[in-house]
Design a binder for these strands. Structure first.
Length: 345
DNA sequence: GAGGCGTGGCG
DNA sequence: TCGCCAAGCCT
């Protein structure tokens, strides 16, 4: 019996048409948002993809350019001091990425060659399933399925997937679609890079979270959510969780224009960054120097800064002139607070 | 496998 | 002001 696919909108022939349309759209409409996509190297893709995790392109660009000036290759990064790595990453957030990136550079330098298969890339620190696929697609122009926030939204609409976001069940469906839809470099004329870039750009500029531009979408004829008039309700809303408020205390220990900073531990919040000392509780009989608050993804920090005298600090420490803060990697809100002191005189 | 992990932009 | 979102990964 002939193998005939009767599934509406999900046949392998239609999948091939869809991926071809993504590539064609990318070639004619796609933007080259990333200036380093000329002259691609695996190291550049690794650096940019780590920086781009949960971070928008416009934010990453200046960080990437500075990074490549200082650490032009994996060997330079492998040999760098941790403080310099953190200084260049400061302000970008999710600081474990910076530490992972240096671990990755050391791993690759030790390996002697850049990993070039999905399985080998997954062994690299900081590289997960998405990043491995992105490196295969962008750096090697080979088969590399990707599922990120853009692709998630696009596939949920295109295939009318109405699972609950952030659940293994939906993730499994999404990756299954990605593996089917992603072109293979063993096929003739496969343009794996344009497909991956096309997916990301379509998600970012057409299949947007709010007010998607379906009239401009090259996949509109294949979109099940559009056909079912469910564009506005797919993907399903993420279950929302209330973020707790936490109190935090910081010590301002000054000698004229210098403040005492301590290096934070390598795990938890703000790993390996320099920061004002943080006691468990507010010191007794201390004068309040100031306050600030900071909104994290998972909680809100209400911080009080207390004027204090020099005491023994159980951490690496440094006296830092307020005019030299750029020499250290600091948490963004702490940097803001210290800059306000400098401004006030 | 659920939760921790930053920061900035935008409606 | 507030909530959502962003080229996710690790434990």
């Amino acid at each position: 019996m002939r193998n005939k696919d009767t599934t509406p909108g999900a046949g392998s022939a239609e999948l091939a048409v869809i991926s071809a349309k993504v590539i064609e759209w990318q070639r004619s409409h796609g933007r080259h948002q990333l200036p380093w996509q000329q002259d691609v190297t695996p190291y550049k893709v690794l650096v940019s993809e780590l920086m781009l995790q949960q971070t928008q392109v416009a934010t990453v660009i200046p960080y990437f350019n500075r990074w490549m000036q200082v650490f032009p290759n994996a060997e330079a990064l492998a040999a760098a001091a941790e403080d310099e790595v953190m200084r260049l990453w400061q302000g970008l957030g999710y600081y474990a990425r910076a530490r992972n990136l240096q671990k990755a550079a050391r791993y690759i330098a030790e390996l002697g060659e850049f990993p070039a298969t999905l399985d080998a890339l997954l062994q690299v620190p900081g590289v997960g399933r998405y990043t491995a696929g992105a490196i295969m697609s962008f750096a090697y122009q080979q088969y590399g399925p990707i599922v990120d926030g853009n692709v998630r939204r696009l596939y949920c609409r295109l295939f009318a997937l109405d699972g609950i976001p952030n659940t293994p069940a939906l993730e499994k469906q999404l990756w299954a679609k990605a593996e089917l839809l992603t072109p293979n470099h063993q096929q003739a004329h496969a343009d794996c890079r344009s497909f991956a870039q096309g997916l990301l750009d379509l998600g970012a500029t057409v299949c947007k979270p709010r007010q998607p531009l379906c009239e401009l979408c090259p996949l509109a004829a294949h979109c099940q959510a559009l056909a079912q008039n469910r564009i506005a309700s797919l993907p399903n809303a993420k279950p929302k969780k209330t973020v707790p408020v936490k109190d935090g205390h910081f010590l301002l220990i000054r000698q004229q224009q210098k403040v005492l900073l301590v290096k934070r531990p390598g795990a938890g919040i703000w790993p390996a960054l320099w920061c004002l000392p943080q006691p468990e509780h507010a010191p007794e009989d201390a004068e309040l120097a100031g306050e600030f608050s900071h909104q994290f993804t998972h909680y809100k920090l209400q911080a009080k800064v207390w004027i204090a005298e020099l005491t023994l600090q159980n951490a690496e420490q440094a006296w830092v002139d307020l005019s030299c803060l750029d020499d250290f990697g600091l948490p963004a809100p702490v940097r803001l607070y210290l800059q306000s002191i400098l401004k006030a005189g």
